[in-house]
Write a protein that binds this DNA or RNA. Sequence first.
DNA 1: CTTGACATACTCACTAGTTCGTACATTTTA
DNA 2: TAAAATGTACGAACTAGTGAGTATGTCAAG
Lengths: 242, 242
Amino acid sequence: MRKFDVDNSGVHDARFSENERDATVRAALRMAAKRENGRKNDPQRTQENILDVATEEFTTHGLAGGRVDAIAEKTRTSKRMIYYYFGSKEGLYLAVLERAYRKIRTLEEDLQLSNLPPEQALRVLISTTFDHDETNPDFVRLVSIENIHHAAHMLRSEAIRDLNVSVIETIAAILARGVAAGVFVRTADPIDIHMLISAFCFFRVSNRYTFGTIFRRDLSEPATMERHKGMIADAVISYLKS
Amino acid sequence: MRKFDVDNSGVHDARFSENERDATVRAALRMAAKRENGRKNDPQRTQENILDVATEEFTTHGLAGGRVDAIAEKTRTSKRMIYYYFGSKEGLYLAVLERAYRKIRTLEEDLQLSNLPPEQALRVLISTTFDHDETNPDFVRLVSIENIHHAAHMLRSEAIRDLNVSVIETIAAILARGVAAGVFVRTADPIDIHMLISAFCFFRVSNRYTFGTIFRRDLSEPATMERHKGMIADAVISYLKS
DNA sequence: CTTGACATACTCACTAGTTCGTACATTTTA
DNA sequence: TAAAATGTACGAACTAGTGAGTATGTCAAG
């Protein structure tokens, strides 16, 4: 039997209150002791398990292509539980999407860029964005899927919308400092710059298969990755300096 | 009897060979005359009609999300005809994909760039790519969908694979001329440059909805478009000059 | 510290509706 | 009249979702 680690750090913040979490942690410890005999009630683990499997299913087959039955089969639990916890296929998909976004927020949060010189700060930011997309293909695919569906589910989730805004502020600050210091000569819109960076990093992952097929090039090769990382950074910076 | 061949050598070639096109044009004219009374056999028009509707359906709902019955209802004809001509839902999807690619090839074919100075040639090429993605959101969406399906259908179609290669040759020539003339100082890989350009142009369209939702910005606004077009061109050129 | 009532977590089997695909009949064209 | 093109109706399989009952854990009262 497979064991699932119940690590999930920030995940339950939204769904469970502090009190409830304590209760659940205690419960989990109790559970851990007598794991091998018959049924155990472990809602947290069950939900995480469902979300893990659902993420895999939706990212490989899309929302419409993903099968609830297929998800159910791969979980430790049953289809009935999926509906018990998430209400519907769409509800499950939304939960998957939100969890993916939440996971990212924690990563993006602290990057001490304000004490670095502007150009270096920007390079670090670009490198971070690049690595982020590279190491989170699931997230990239979910966003692609969302776009096919006209971002319909995203619209319903404020949690997701009020995200990325901090990145823009970070970029705006770097650009302002750069111009003030005379390192950058161009005054650019921070959202545009974010898009220039994000487009390249995202595309490398989202279009990996078609691009790879057409040009017979493996974009996940380390050497290619490093070259691309350098290229996007140089392109953005030379743009701001020209 | 079914017209659809398993190896589909017959269907697509026949539909687009020069000889038959003339024949069909003549037929179409004949048809046009007596359009209002009862059923007319017009296979070409029927197929085109199905492909138009199917493109719309697949680009809005994806491959799995697209419904054959929905397509059939919106056509001038019946579901039976879809299977008669395309064999299966996947066959139809593949035909849609191939037609989209074919449409693009004709557009990309002749761009007389070799007699323009390198920098200007590159600007024209970038502008063309930009406009292309902008005016062909269907194509962009189909490619996105293909990536979700790991480019599985693209692999089966050589027609599609042997495309874009000409763009690379064009870029390679421009870069070589630029370096020779001393306008560009950096020797870059043409495929990388193509990716830098394509990523931005593609992303603007493919991620229009999520990006628009998060940053509350309409990417299809003319002013925004022009600014972006200038930005990607400047970024690429300043990169090559640095 | 036991009991039993209650809430939560969970199981099993089932269904209503959808969806791709086809058998069969018919009409048009060459 | 043969072959190609088309319309109608239907079915088998799949798929999202549910009804109804069971197990487990909690907690308060005896």
